[in-house]
Write a protein that binds this DNA or RNA. Structure first.
Lengths: 351, 351
DNA sequence: ATTAGCACTCTAACGAGGTGAGTGCTAAAA
DNA sequence: TTTTAGCACTCACCTCGTTAGAGTGCTAAT
């Protein structure tokens, strides 16, 4: 059977109504609320067809119809016309995010991410997530500072503007002068070395120049490798997350068990990391069971990555019930991801 | 009316039973499950008295009794004999916390706190919180590092082992040498200056020695003040929190609205900060409406502070329904707070 | 002072009937 | 051939009455 223009209009109307009301919608309601030009009986026949084709379904015999996952998919891909965020709202979001990004903290993104997820959750009444993955960032500069007798502090500056530090136990005394020397040496070698490349080539070169303090250097370099590795690992860890309450206020979460499943999944931040795709261009829509995680089977997830220098360095996503306003949420995700890219690019480290 | 020995025993038994079952307990149940040596009828009379005195109450006429807040209070203060955590469990907790505390990160406590709250929540099936407040910590050392043209990085080392950094916009060019000089100058002055004292006296002294670069110094010092202040502010911010799901699996949270209230309060971390007392010696028990926050009116909160050098630097707390196993939870809070004190003291900065 | 007995109360669980929204089918109208 | 009006039917949901059970308070006996 073909899905002709009239069927498309009916499907479109049905999804609109269901998104707004969260109630199964019947033929009569549809003909009353939308100007479809046909009687409820005709709509009934068309709806029977649409059901047979799999686009809509009936919760029970005497109820109206609701969109199936396939229906939503068709809506997102073919029916929904793109929406630009209302200018006022866009400005508001932009301003809000920027206001937090300008905080004095070295690791500026922290506060901005946190603020962003809460803001977006408030605006959409859904849950929102940022995952900052650190990948692809480049080490620009490094400082070794004295700490305790056999411990030093390693401060690293990255091209995305982050400043990080860690304490290293190097097993022997080092003078301030030596640390200064090391700092200079390293920074000479650091042009624009990507995380991945640094480990092998450059570290060895530096090693050669410092053979006279072999122990110290061995300690230090193996420690550096660990710092770099842990940065890669940790990549998967930084999750900013907000809006549980807004989410469970949605009518689909009247059911206690659903809430519990959801909260359980939220608590394991790992699961959120797993569902957010790390490399994907543009806005991605995952509907219902297209999601792997069981707890999110009744949810849809709209995601986009944000970039620095054209490389994806993190993801932003909005999670909500499959019945969500895809049009608005897609626009929102797109806009927020762009804003994040912009903000983070701006504070790039470039001496 | 006096609360005699028999009443005490009955109240004790009733609370025991209610903590275990979460159901109102009647006279018959009580006489069956506990060896009180009297008939249900007698227990009924005593219970009527206890109710009149305010220690217990009836949800409705034909139900059993449940402890009132006053009843719990009496139980905690007079009836409950102290409990030491099971040795195996204590060892387990200690080991778990330590395992995370030994991570390589500079800000070591992060991971340990997070792990602790989740661990404890799992063990008690309640919610648990750590608030690290930074107060009373002393600035031990400071480094100024070059960053971008008019920006520098300020790295601060504190006596509790924390290493923090922030980026400062100082409005003019500074050479690496000047930064080194500043670093040395500041560190000479820094003996053991507590956060509070540093602001006035020492900053002015340093200012005098550097009058020749007045602009730079003004910028820097005012910026330093902001760093110190923000540290005080931020004190109220660091909340580690875990176990929502465990908590709402408790039978008192069958009600959807209660869950929502709770989640709402949890999302505003600020509220958690507000209810945790910052200065209090030993284990503190706040029962039901003794808590200010509305959402926690049906909850009890057991807290203790953890210390470094005898000064409280943070709080640990367990939040659960008023019907909780106070004996076990008090023991748990005490033990965990001690463990945290121990772990953090160990990595104190002392060059 | 304690206890057995009993009438009474109140909740929770169950089931019956009524209501209303919505359907599918059929036959008439366009 | 397509659309529509009409109608019988279905099913969730609400309300209301009934019942069962747990627990109480009171009274009278021990």
């Amino acid at each position: 059977m073909e899905i002709d223009e009239r069927k498309r209009r009916i499907l479109w109307a049905l999804i609109q109504d269901y998104i707004a009301s969260a109630e199964p919608v019947g033929s009569r309601t549809l003909s009353r609320r939308f100007d479809l030009g046909v009687s409820p009986a005709t709509i009934r026949n068309e709806m029977a067809d649409l059901e047979e084709m799999g686009y809509i379904e009936q919760p029970h015999t005497s109820a109206g119809r609701i969109p199936s996952e396939m229906g939503y998919r068709y809506y997102v891909d073919c029916l929904m016309e793109p929406l630009a965020l209302d200018q006022g709202e866009a400005d508001f979001i932009q301003k809000e995010i920027e206001s937090k990004a300008n905080e004095a903290k070295a690791d500026e993104a922290e506060g901005a991410f946190d603020h962003t997820v809460h803001l977006v959750s408030e605006l959409t009444k859904l849950t929102s997530v940022v995952i900052s993955q650190n990948r692809h960032s480049t080490l620009k500069k490094i400082h070794f500072l004295p700490y305790q007798s056999c411990k030093i502090i390693i401060v690293t500056l990255w091209d995305d503007g982050k400043v990080e530090n860690s304490v290293a136990d190097i097993g022997e005394e080092v003078s301030d002068q030596e640390l200064q020397l090391l700092t200079n040496l390293f920074n000479e070698k650091l042009g624009t070395v990507a995380t991945g490349n640094l480990k092998s080539a450059v570290l060895h070169e530096i090693r050669n120049e410092l053979l006279q303090r072999k122990n110290l250097i061995d300690h230090l370099l193996s420690r550096m490798e660990r710092v770099l590795e842990s940065r890669d690992d940790e990549a998967l860890k930084k999750v900013y997350f907000g809006g549980t309450l807004n989410m469970i206020n949605q009518p689909e979460f009247k059911n206690l068990d659903k809430i519990k499943d959801l909260l359980g999944a939220f608590e394991e931040h790992k699961k959120l990391v797993d569902i957010l795709p790390r490399n994907y261009d543009g806005v991605r829509v995952q509907i219902g069971s297209e999601n792997q995680e069981k707890a999110f089977r009744d949810c849809s997830l709209i995601t986009a990555t944000y970039h620095v220098n054209g490389l994806p360095i993190g993801s932003f996503g909005i999670l909500g019930p499959t019945r969500m306003d895809y049009r608005r949420v897609v626009a929102m995700v797109q806009f927020v991801a762009e804003s994040l890219s912009y903000i983070i690019s701006r504070r790039t480290f470039d001496p």
